[in-house]
């Protein structure tokens, strides 16, 4: 596939835009791909519906916004409601089941992971919701290599949080494998 479109939707404060930046950095800096990160947010600092589009490809990205989305991550019900429409029929939908319940089951391939719950329970900090999400996203789509996302997360992790973020990322990888997504060695259909 020449162009792979992802969208992360949440509410202001969850870190979805930063997650999009890190994914695009993994693609551009560490995997040598082309990528664009394009955010949308409201005037509310906390709580407004927020999304970020990340488009990754082997050739330059001309139009910088997603129009036919392959993978959608919903970290809030409101963001799902507002932003899911451009997800392709049969596209991958990953929802944080702690916060999102109503989705279009028949239209998308739906995967539910209690991401916020996992962050609190397994890592002890809800702030790593976006890092766990990145682990899940990369393991499910293989849009960038695991090594690239690890390097990108480490480059962005504030000093003293490296270990926590790496653990959160690995937790995301593990949860995706539990849902049947193959480890990295076998290329899945979604790979760029």
């Amino acid at each position: 596939m020449d162009r792979y479109e992802l969208r992360f939707g949440g509410v202001g404060g969850q870190g979805v835009i930063l997650a999009g930046t890190i994914l695009a950095e993994a693609a551009v800096i560490y995997d040598g791909l082309y990528a664009v990160q394009s955010p949308t947010y409201t005037a509310q600092v906390r709580g407004g519906a927020t999304k970020v589009d990340v488009i990754i490809g082997k050739t330059p990205i001309i139009y910088p916004r997603a129009t036919a989305i392959d993978f959608f991550l919903a970290l809030a019900q409101r963001s799902y409601d507002v932003f899911h429409h451009q997800l392709k029929e049969g596209g991958l939908l990953l929802v944080d089941s702690t916060l999102v319940s109503r989705v279009d089951e028949d239209r998308y391939r739906v995967y539910r992971v209690p991401i916020t719950d996992l962050a609190e329970r397994e890592i002890g900090r809800v702030v790593v919701v976006n890092t766990i999400s990145l682990g899940l996203t990369v393991a499910m789509t293989k849009v960038v290599s695991r090594k690239a996302i690890e390097q990108a997360v480490m480059a962005r992790a504030p000093r003293g949080t490296e270990e926590m973020n790496m653990k959160a990322l690995q937790l995301g990888f593990a949860k995706a494998e539990e849902m049947g997504f193959a480890p990295e060695e076998t290329k899945a259909e979604e790979a760029v």
């Binding site: 695009a24 990528a35 990160q37 910088p64």
Partner: peptide, 9 residues
């Protein structure tokens, strides 16, 4: 706003 806020390599 699109060009100001978008990130690209």
């Amino acid at each position: 706003e699109i060009l100001g806020h978008m990130h690209e390599g």
